[in-house]
Design a protein around this nucleic acid. Structure first.
Lengths: 231, 231
DNA sequence: CAGTAATATGAACAGTGTTCAGTCTTCAAA
DNA sequence: TTTGAAGACTGAACACTGTTCATATTACTG
């Protein structure tokens, strides 16, 4: 006895080493230039061996995306310790933008890159994402309660607006789509401030969230019956 | 004589047919799954022949990006014929968002996809882009003059904020990063309205454009002395 | 008609994700 | 201790990818 446990442990060790190698390459060279062969070489296995641990390359990067969400969660959590409710909201989304700068590859994978086509393992283990979103919504709710936002504001809609609004500056920054010398941080800060000011101004919004906590977000909504759609 | 002219014409015809084939495949299957071999097959040439018309695959898509900017220009121009200055600004950027829905692949190529690494032909022929940007800035300036925005607002900074702000909802829409059933258009509309409201509220901005008309935008700023930077 | 210049190609190179028939190791049961 | 089964691992291959280059074909000029 104990044999099975040891085997499981060894299997897990190899699984982890694959993820470690993938992460190193991924962060150093970016998603597209990481190949199964490079990962295999790094862990001193044959390329084929990888496939008895992960069904496809996409699944490896899915596991990394999961990691990415955890990192983002930690960063956002650390940023939101201000006493002021409005400052907390600002800090939350500034942390989101900073994450895009510190971990651009993770960010692209999580929010921008084409959703991986053949997802073998369903998006399980992403429940904590709901927690992350719920936190962001709660922070906005507190700011509403504190009078920093109008009572008529839907915290959920506001959360989506801040989220979508800040993805833009993040992408612009990562892809260097500004003239040289222009300040990406200033642009992001301005977008954040202007969005917050707009939300404060009480402009009416039409977006209605459909309880995204139950659906999951970030591509989680691959319909159960979706069979092999193109691209 | 006249021979040279005819040769040039024939050469141009093949060049165009390559672009036509690339565009069709590109719009139908998306950037990553279009290969030189597929383009070659479509125009009934060998893959190698392509390389005597375009130095690399990237250059083909660079030419398509140029097309994309022209299409965007036309769409934005058509949208901005309202009498009201503020409505014009709104229409301008709503057209920008709609372009992302109608031509997602063009949009990704122009604003999101990784900048092509080895750009053979320098970003020439993009001068009209400055015109596009100048138009957007001018529309904001008119709204300021009409009293719709505070006099203290920098039209250039505002333009950048609307631009960056709307890229987010566009990407979210293209990548389907919302829970099923949620309304992408509503989110984009809200982001646009909230951004405009924020700009109207007179929040101070820190972004300073460095006369982007002279530098070009959208990745044009590959420094002259930049030799082969990774990824 | 000879020579030259443009044009197009087949074959190859080095790389990709992935599959699969086998081998090799490990370990429990006979 | 031997046998047999299960699992892990690999080499080789398949069908792709972008790109290069010597070669062949064609067209035009002097």
């Amino acid at each position: 006895m104990g044999t099975r446990e040891r085997q499981d442990r060894e299997r897990q060790a190899v699984t982890d080493s694959i993820l470690d190698a993938a992460r190193e390459l991924f962060l150093a060279e970016g998603y597209p230039s990481v190949s199964i062969r490079k990962i295999a070489e790094r862990i001193e296995y044959s390329p084929a061996a990888i496939y008895s641990y992960y069904p496809s390359k996409d699944d490896i990067f899915l596991a990394l995306a999961k990691e990415g969400f955890h990192r983002l969660d930690a960063k956002v959590h650390a940023a939101m310790k201000s006493g002021d409710a409005l400052e907390n909201v600002r800090a939350c989304w500034w942390a989101f933008y900073e994450f895009s700068k510190e971990q651009p590859e993770y960010f692209l994978l999580m929010f921008v890159d084409r959703s991986v086509p053949r997802i073998t393992q369903q998006w399980d283990g992403f429940e904590f994402l709901q927690q992350l979103l719920a936190n962001a919504v709660a922070a906005i709710q507190r700011a509403i309660d504190a009078g920093a936002f109008p009572k008529s504001l839907s915290p959920d809609a506001a959360m989506h607006m801040l989220w979508a609004g800040l993805i833009g500056p993040a992408v612009v920054g990562i892809r260097h789509r500004l003239a040289s010398g222009e300040d990406y941080d200033a642009l992001a800060r301005d977008v954040l401030n202007v969005t917050i000011a707009g939300l404060q101004s009480g402009v009416e919004t039409s977006f209605v969230s459909c309880k995204c906590a139950e659906e999951g977000i970030a591509g989680a909504r691959v319909p159960a019956g979706a069979t092999r759609h193109e691209s």
